[in-house]
Design a binder for these strands. Structure first.
Lengths: 153, 153
DNA sequence: CGAAATTAGTTGAGTGTTCAACTACTGCGC
DNA sequence: GCGCAGTAGTTGAACACTCAACTAATTTCG
């Protein structure tokens, strides 16, 4: 390997560590709150949200995986649990016999509706309230750039 | 509950989702790269980093937990694995008989030294390269504010 | 058409994380 | 100095995630 590592300078070092600390703390906190108040991890909550916004509250497994940021395997396992809880049902896809459609049940919708206010309050308290309007705009731009770049990686 | 939920407006909604997508993708990517190239998850890497920077490459379990952003339980489990791998050793604390001191072995240090360049390259590629200098400065400020707020939560 | 490559989704084993319960020790308050 | 609240760390069980291997259906294209 002839290429020298481009190490992080002290400023970058601090930025990276601050980001790591903040995003980990934020996610851990929201996850803990959701687990405590709604008995589900944040990943499951997000699956329910995506389903609730889909037409007919139905989504193909692969689209659901994509939109909720899960791997297919993770989603399979998760939906199995959500189905056992009665919040989601699987249906066969009429146009592709390999396909499965996840369908948010009324129970699942009710569960989500009950969990949402507390969770949104948490997002507000831990993310938006501490930042001013300019920082929020910056954060959005930064996140979009990073997400875009990572999508094609 | 008489207080109405302060829902997220469309802008906040998009900001929150972009942040979620970006930070998840970033962490997942770095975790996968580290697992592939060094055979360890990011959480373990960070434990080794903190130990490597401590005087004598030694740290009390609780300080290590604090500085690496782990719960005590998580750290106990993690150090058990790192010890099995021969990268860390536990020692009794001379001043407090409840205490344990984690000590980075030479093997552990070598392992870390081997893993670091690739990981730093990944952080650069996925985080710093896509952002301009101003955005990096903003991200640092934002992260510091959030981390500070979450610490006292 | 028909074989090969691709895509959809699941599964199980292995690993990591959480939570609550537990032991052992320390240090405060009296 | 004694009792008791708090601190340090570990443990096991339940749960979640990853990876690779797998089945089955579909698409591609010679």
């Amino acid at each position: 390997m002839l290429v020298m590592t481009r190490w992080l300078d002290p400023d970058e070092q601090r930025t990276w560590r601050a980001f790591l600390t903040a995003s980990r703390a934020l996610m851990d906190t929201l996850d803990r709150e959701l687990q405590r108040d709604a008995g589900m991890p944040h990943a499951y909550y997000e699956i329910l949200v995506r389903l609730s916004e889909a037409p007919g509250r139905r989504l193909r497994m692969s689209e659901l995986a994509e939109s909720s940021g899960s791997s297919r395997s993770r989603l399979s396992h998760a939906v199995a649990r959500l189905e056992a809880a009665g919040w989601v049902r699987r249906e066969d896809c009429p146009t592709d016999r390999r396909g499965q459609i996840a369908h948010l049940t009324d129970d699942g919708f009710a569960k989500l509706a009950a969990a949402a206010p507390g969770h949104v309050e948490g997002v507000r308290r831990h993310l938006f309230d501490p930042l001013d309007a300019d920082q929020v705009a910056q954060l959005r731009r930064i996140s979009e750039v990073l997400a875009e770049r990572l999508r094609s990686a």
